[in-house]
């Protein structure tokens, strides 16, 4: 029970921790305060409780695939929010230091903070609900209590530690590089969201299912620790289908194109 509780908690915590560390590092670079972190934690925990306690009802929606659809919608929501965040951030960065331009840092700050709160809240809601379900299911038998608690502590600590180290890595970089790396990671996390959402929709039979395109599980198994990390970070799948891979690619390319387009526009008309 220990190992599985470690894996379950780690998978959920790691995703949130990575997202948070990127956001916090970027906030720091932009000179925002960290009040939004407390808000997202608070709202996210409330959301997780509500979702976790009502998952029974949610599951019954759409002929028994409500859970998949809800999760997929949350993930698509996160994706769109991240997309918006990246665009606003790019506008902020491209416009600063240019003559005759409004100070976007000030005007766009509320929007950026709002998006961070929404994204973090959604992420915690989805992941926290699963942790809550797991915890209440497993601890019903006394046999596993110690093992599960130990496992949850270990998994949570590992996830948070990685988040911290990641944050300090990002904030040790200079402004330009921390923005570039932060944005790239965000693009990967966002694309991973699309891939996961598409997978859920395939599972719910909302998207057509297909034979997998390839199988890289021999090369990097999704079960392995690195596989889990890659899953959280870039949405690694060993056996994706064409739709999933296509959507992942789109999820990856769209923000890059939009950011490059913005850069192009600002370079043309400064």
């Amino acid at each position: 029970m220990l190992l599985s509780s470690v894996i379950i908690i780690l998978r959920e915590v790691l995703e949130a921790a990575l997202l948070f560390s990127i956001f916090i590092a970027l906030s720091r670079q932009l000179g925002f305060d960290f009040k939004w972190v407390a808000w997202s934690l608070f709202l996210g925990l409330i959301g997780a409780m509500i979702y976790g306690l009502n998952i029974d009802a949610v599951s019954q929606w759409y002929d028994g695939v409500g859970q998949e659809v809800t999760n997929a919608l949350m993930q698509l929501g996160i994706y769109l929010m991240l997309l918006l965040y990246m665009l606003l951030l790019s506008i902020t960065l491209f416009s600063t230091g240019r003559p005759n331009s409004i100070n976007h840092k000030k005007t766009l700050k509320p929007a950026l903070v709002f998006i961070m709160i929404i994204v973090s809240t959604l992420a915690i809601t989805r992941e926290g609900a699963e942790v809550i379900l797991y915890f209440f299911s497993v601890t019903r038998s006394e046999n596993h209590l110690v093992a599960v608690l130990t496992g949850m502590t270990i998994g949570g600590s590992i996830g948070i530690s990685i988040g911290f180290l990641f944050y300090y890595f990002l904030s040790s970089l200079n402004f330009k590089w921390s923005i570039i790396i932060g944005l790239s990671l965000m693009i990967m996390v966002a694309a991973a969201m699309v891939s996961q959402a598409s997978l859920l929709l395939i599972q719910a039979d909302w998207l057509p299912s297909q034979l997998p395109l390839w199988d890289t599980s021999g090369w990097l198994s999704e079960r392995s620790a690195i596989g889990q990390l890659m899953y959280a970070l870039i949405g690694y799948e060993a056996t994706p289908t064409a739709i999933q891979a296509g959507l992942y690619l789109c999820g990856f390319i769209v923000p890059i194109l939009l950011i490059l387009g913005l850069k192009f526009k600002y370079n043309l008309y400064p």
Partner: peptide, 11 residues
């Protein structure tokens, strides 16, 4: 992992 499936089945 092999089927790429993950779903909570409530009691």
């Amino acid at each position: 992992y092999e089927l790429n499936r993950e779903k909570v089945i409530i009691g």
